[in-house]
Amino acid sequence: MDRKIFILVVEDELEVMEALVNDLEQFEGYFPIESANSSEEAKQVVEDIYAAGNEIGLVLCDHVMPGQNGVDFLIELQTNNQQHNAKKVLVTGQAGLEDTIQAINNAQLDHYIAKPWTKEQLEEVVTAQLTNYIMAQRYNPMQYMMILDSVRLLEYMRTHKITDH
């Protein structure tokens, strides 16, 4: 496929960002990773990605950051016609109940990862969410069998009448 599907990581603390990106290494070959230190920078990155004809499949976002907080950024993303398809995951230790409710109701948050995370847990969530994304967008599942959840992708092919020709 010509359109690239990006993973966007938004995190203000450099070490945390590095750790996240490191743990996502195995996805990089299929889903290029972009990072941003703040909501403001993230918006610019998002704009650039879509302007180049590409798209975002998954956003991993911290909550407490200088400037606009993570939940508000995700809500803004959700209101955008083009960008709201991206799967949204909060990676945070500090989002209160109120913020979390906000994120679920208004940003259609797909998953919440509490810091500190484990590599296995992160990979599992990212795999599941990107699999959801590929199926929701009706992209050809065969290209992602080796990296995402192959059983679910096969099940999708079985039930969605991908046929002989």
Binding site: S150, V151, L154, E155, M157, R158, K161, I162, T163, D164
Partner: peptide, 15 residues
Amino acid sequence: MSNTATTAMMMTVIL
């Protein structure tokens, strides 16, 4: 059934 749907189902058996 379609060859393709059958293959998708059987692959879930062999994985």
